[in-house]
Design a protein around this nucleic acid. Structure first.
Lengths: 213, 213
DNA sequence: ATACATGTGTTGAATTCTCGACAGTTCTAT
DNA sequence: ATAGAACTGTCGAGAATTCAACACATGTAT
């Protein structure tokens, strides 16, 4: 692969410059010169790595998205719902937030006001598709509450993403563990609460809460 | 000169690595590998810039010392003693402390417990030679106090250096201006005070203090 | 409408850096 | 006392980066 130190160094420099420039100017208005000046790299060198500025943007974004997706795919609703009952953070979820923290600058900008509006949508869609619906399948009773299922899915996804966003915007004061525990708990509690609503409304089949092995 | 970006970049990386490693281990025990590993640079590249590790140390130190000396040479006792009476920082002295601030990491380490004991001596000797004695020449009456002249010189130099050291050790909280003003004032006050001692002992030729155009 | 500045891609030759290897030295532990 | 590990200084071949220069496009102010 790209074993040569120089390649990884200049790509890192370019990426760092991209984030900085994107934070200053919009995501538009960026020029190749901006990047190479900021990175203190010859302008020609840029074209040794990327064909284009839009190409670079695209490539960087998909690389980061792949990294995030890859970690989110390892999440298992069975696991973190069970960790929630023990008030412990799901280790797999910690990995996810460590990834956010590792690339804090990128995510802060890309998810911020001058970032790419499509990016948070990507995340939310993934959450909806791979997790929330899974949870509802694990707990089919939840789907029978007063909320229509699609609203429920939307609600879970949005609330979780909003926590991540706030964490990032406030400079990531808390550790990845803390946020992981927070989300784990919120998920657990929400599930419990909604289950309670269902019980309240249809009040019959009793259960000792959400606890799942 | 060294126009090529790569040269300045790797030299900067090496210098940064040197400071970091010097802070961890002593000034001894450092190895070329340490530096090139920390700087993420090929070991062979080191020898493209320096013949040796001691050579690099020497070179870096003299470069920094030259920079410092160069700025200190522009100081003029006439000026800062006059600025002192107006409670303003001498602009030339501000330049000196801005230099300290610019290379804060280097000075913190080189003047610190794991640094080079010879370095502060260098500074002090310079102060003694180029400034304190000048002051005493400007104010020859000062030389006639109870303190022998050599002790006086030593006293001034040491007290000034100690302030800089403390500034550096405490993480340079104050701005360069603040420190410049502080030193300017201390110099002015000290001169006044010692002049008072002399007056007290020999009490005759009266003057409106130290003020000098 | 024209000049003028700024940005884009691309090129070729020169320079610097990387990688992997080498033999020789010094330190350390057994 | 000796083997093993780590460091040193050096080398050649090849890869990456630099620099200066192109021609061309896109504004932008006069």
């Amino acid at each position: 692969m790209s074993m040569d130190r120089r390649k990884v160094r200049t790509k890192a420099l370019l990426r760092k410059a991209l984030i900085e420039v994107m934070e200053e100017k919009g995501p538009e208005r960026i020029t190749v010169r901006d990047l190479t000046d900021k990175a203190d790299i010859n302008r020609g060198t840029f074209y040794l790595h990327y064909t284009d500025l839009p190409a670079m943007l695209q490539q960087v974004k998909t690389e980061m998205w792949d990294g995030l997706k890859q970690r989110m795919e390892k999440l298992n609703p069975y696991d973190y719902l069970s960790f929630a009952t023990r008030n412990e953070p799901d280790p797999m979820m910690v990995k996810v937030f460590e990834y956010y923290a590792e690339h804090a600058d990128f995510f802060r900008v890309i998810l911020g006001p001058k970032g790419d509006p499509a990016f948070p949508v990507l995340i939310k869609e993934f959450l909806k598709k791979h997790h929330i619906t899974k949870i509802l399948n694990i707990q089919p009773e939840l789907a029978e509450t007063i909320l229509p299922k699609d609203y429920m899915v939307e609600y879970f996804a949005a609330s979780n993403l909003s926590i991540v966003l706030h964490w990032i915007e406030t400079g990531m004061q808390e550790s990845a563990d803390t946020i992981a525990l927070l989300i784990t708990n919120i998920l657990g509690i929400s599930v419990e609460r909604l289950y309670g609503i269902k019980n309240h409304n249809h009040g019959n089949k009793r259960k000792t809460h959400v606890r799942k092995t």
